[in-house]
Nucleic acid binder design. Structure first.
Lengths: 187, 187
DNA sequence: AACAAGCTATGTCGTACGTCATACCTTCGA
DNA sequence: TCGAAGGTATGACGTACGACATAGCTTGTT
């Protein structure tokens, strides 16, 4: 009933995710995605009838899913909200440093390069915030939602400035400020 | 020995600045810049031999200059570091809201859409941080540089998430956290 | 063996950036 | 005061590349 079941689709999503993190949305050509994923050129429109936008949507969704898993995982090991904050910041920072300041956030470009993908980014951010806030609330943090907003904004901002400055100073600063605030909240 | 001096150049820089804030770098075609600035096509390469990249560099530089002026202005009126933080956040927020969540930061796209413009962005961020830190130090803040890093990252991050969420919640959250930290620093 | 459904290679159209030949304006020299 | 020269500015073009659509092929099933 079918031809060979190909793994090209998933490979393309992975490649797209990486490239968007590094170069943004418009700077990434479909040919770049194909080259990195070693997928055949003609497959794009078949696997993603919506074209590039659909590919980006899927990449964002997978990125978010993976992030949510990591958050929940970190929350399970954390002994308090400060631990979770540290873990979340650490995740972004280590990815950035390990890639020699190349890999930022997959979602951010979709916001800045407005192409009708703002809503996708909005859903992703909402999920992240709600998940973070849920864990913070469990830890007994008042205004858990507010803290989650600050954490997300801090990470996104640090990812940008750290990249441009080629320094982890922004991450250290954000971490200091957030921990300072968390301590105060719990007092 | 000279021809007519045209204001086309400056108009183009202004238009580019606006468009990059709204759409990012690659999504902004030179034809878009020309349309908004009402400048002729041929003028691009004449005024900016380096092409689009040079135009972006100039736009970033002018954006930064204006920002530094505003920071210094706000610092003069501020009675403490918290005032300056509020003013800087307020500037970004009011621009964003006034434009119906369209106008973000001019520099950020240059970082995310890597096209060799990272260093330009780096210089801009360094200037902003140093200026902020200078004022914070004047106000007697210890670790003024660290605070400046956190403020910049907070604003950049809030600009992204607020835009996607179409909400000012990120700004409010960042402000709360930063003020909380400043209070603690001065204690 | 033949059909159907998944999969892929090639072709086409639109558009972006960069370039060039040309027209213009200003200033200097006679 | 007038003409010439050289920097200044511009509209039309070329080249290259991006996304998208379609026609053909491979594979598994009956």
């Amino acid at each position: 009933m079918a031809g060979k079941r190909s793994d090209a689709r998933q490979k393309m999503v992975v490649a797209a995710r990486e490239l968007f993190r590094e170069q943004g949305y418009h700077a990434t050509a479909l040919s770049d995605v194909l080259k990195r994923s070693e997928a055949p050129r003609g497959s794009v429109y078949f696997h993603f009838p919506g074209g590039k936008a659909e590919l980006a949507t899927e990449a964002a969704d997978q990125h978010t899913s993976e992030l949510l898993e990591n958050i929940t995982l970190a929350a399970a090991e954390a002994t308090g909200p400060a631990d979770l904050v540290r873990a979340y910041l650490g995740l972004a920072r280590s990815n950035l440093v390990a890639s020699d300041y190349r890999q930022g956030c997959t979602i951010a470009p979709l916001v800045l390069e407005s192409d009708g993908l703002d809503d996708v980014a909005g859903r992703s951010f909402t999920l992240i915030i709600d998940t973070l806030a849920g864990h913070f609330a469990t830890f007994g943090v008042p205004d858990a939602h507010e803290l989650a907003h600050a954490v997300l904004a801090g990470v996104e901002g640090a990812l940008i400035t750290a990249r441009a400055l080629r320094s982890t100073a922004p991450f250290d600063a954000v971490q200091t400020v957030l921990e300072s605030h968390v301590e105060r909240l719990l007092k």
